[in-house]
Design a protein around this nucleic acid. Structure first.
Lengths: 174, 174
DNA sequence: AACTACGTTCAGTCCATACTGAACGATATG
DNA sequence: CATATCGTTCAGTATGGACTGAACGTAGTT
């Protein structure tokens, strides 16, 4: 963050913007994503006009490579959108202000993916267990009963979370 | 994971358990936590009896230090609970089966903490902005209007998420 | 064609942190 | 008291992933 935001001329105002950008970086970093992604979004979010890659790198003082990949990431989450400025070759971006859509296509979407892969793993375990019970002569031991029951409860829990994520009521609560 | 689960005598059954433990590790790792914490919980979850630290380290083939800190972490999330076995000095642990409570005191609690620190950061930004506007002679520029409006929307969004996290309806959905 | 301006990509670096090994304190047991 | 067992702690290591710098491809400009 080597340069003050150029579009902000008042030094006090730009101080507030820098704090906001810094906060965005810290927040995303606390969630395991890097700090660049939060800074990029925060910068675009406060900018009154779309910014191009070089402007972003200049304002934040990070490499162009980071900004490029980060912007695409934010685009996938529909957190920023591509904007064409006429008679300008460069790609401009502006922040999406619809946080609801951001949540759906960002956080909730990745959550759903993780749930899916977890489901695949669970099915793997269960088929392994089914094979084991088919080949095992004594299916009535307490140990197998506990394992099968616990696996079933795990699956039920997984289904419940899945249902919650797909519940239209959740959308309504946002 | 150098040793098969000792409490599981059937080799096929233990194969399924190992897969489940491995899946648990991969899942927690995909969420940014390590893989040990998922493995420990998965092991305890399938175990028909409480296990002590040395048993867990033996089964998983990880260091005792990892298990010690990890078990405390799981305890804070009420994902495992301490169990006393009479005439045994060692600490035994068993998995909590109430996933609902786990979610509340694990995921949701940490989420709430992150929201709180984010709120503090936002307040910081807003006071900085308020000072800026107080000292700035021209408060009517479009730029300041955009910034103040966006900051306000950010705060509203934060409040909405906070409300959702504290909504009793969310508990009911689980 | 040559040259410039953009954006992307990829190998390499750097850094945070999960994990380890050894030392330690505490508590029992002989 | 001496010894053993158990859990925690802490400095050090290793591993994953964020980030960088340079090279590349492409599309415009002269």
């Amino acid at each position: 963050m080597k340069a003050l935001a150029e579009h902000v001329e008042s030094p006090e105002l730009s101080a507030a913007c820098l704090r906001f950008i810094e906060s965005g970086g810290h927040t995303t970093q606390s969630f395991g994503l890097g700090q660049v992604i939060g800074q990029v979004f925060a910068l675009l979010y406060l900018s009154p006009r779309p910014l191009c890659l070089d402007e972003i790198t200049e304002e934040l003082g990070v490499s162009k490579a980071s900004v490029s990949t980060t912007v695409r990431q934010l685009e996938n989450w529909s957190a920023v959108k591509h904007v064409w400025v006429k008679s300008d070759r460069r790609d401009f971006y502006e922040a999406e202000t619809d946080f609801k859509a951001m949540l759906r296509q960002g956080v909730l979407a990745t959550l759903r993916k993780k749930m899916d892969t977890a489901a695949v793993r669970l099915e793997n375990v269960e088929t392994t267990l089914a094979d084991a019970l088919k080949n095992s002569p004594q299916p009535e031991r307490e140990e197998t009963r506990v394992v099968t029951e616990r696996l079933q409860r795990a699956r039920q829990f997984h289904a419940k979370i899945n249902g919650l994520l797909n519940n239209p009521l959740l959308d309504h609560l946002l």
